[in-house]
């Protein structure tokens, strides 16, 4: 696995069992070597340099075509992936821009889903709060049903169903 991020403390080997399943007693494990050094002198090292240059350009110009073009130019000037970039410059820019657009769309979609979940969660949390209050004050289930019907505009049946799940 190639790591191109900025974290300093990255393990040399990642284990599925140890790092994702809390070292559970599993019969199988998957161990992956993490490649992160720029100083390899091969094409992988050059790719890692390219990723770092791109990140720095994104920090300056945002996820734009200009950032992609600058990153490619800097790498070409410094002999990084030069042969590849000389022949496929336009293709690489197009792919980068497409990936930026995809990232943007994913961000919008993710925020929208989170908003939907938050709305549902708020209502659920408020009902739980009312139920908890009723329990603390020693109220009966009937009192709780009445409060939830009033506060949340639910039918008696719906309120009773919610309370049965939470009481």
């Amino acid at each position: 696995m190639i790591y191109t991020g900025n974290r300093k403390a990255v393990k040399d080997i990642i284990s599925l069992k140890e790092d994702f399943w809390d070292n559970a007693n599993l019969p199988l494990d998957l161990r992956v070597k993490v490649i992160r050094s720029e100083d390899r002198g091969d094409i992988i090292g050059q790719y890692i340099i390219f990723a770092h240059v791109l990140d720095s350009q994104i920090n300056i110009h945002g996820r734009t075509k200009l950032a992609a073009e600058n990153a490619i130019r800097i790498c070409q000037d410094n002999g990084v992936l030069k042969e590849y970039l000389d022949g496929r410059r336009k293709e690489v820019v197009d792919i980068m821009v497409m990936l930026f657009d995809q990232d943007y769309a994913m961000g919008v979609y993710g925020r929208e889903r989170e908003r939907v979940g938050e709305k549902r969660g708020k209502k659920c949390g408020k009902i739980e709060g009312v139920v908890e209050t009723c329990r603390k004050l020693g109220a009966t289930i009937d009192d709780a049903v009445r409060m939830i019907m009033e506060d949340f505009g639910l039918s008696q049946e719906a309120a009773l169903k919610q309370i049965r799940e939470l009481w």
Binding site: M106, E118, G125, G129
Partner: peptide
């Protein structure tokens, strides 16, 4: 990914709802 984000939002919403109601009730 959508479900994961929705679940995260739901958890946060639940905390907000609980805190709002419980605070009002003097917890």
């Amino acid at each position: 990914y959508g479900l994961e984000r929705e679940r995260r939002g739901e958890k946060r919403g639940m905390v907000i709802g609980l805190v709002k109601v419980c605070r009002k009730q003097g917890f």
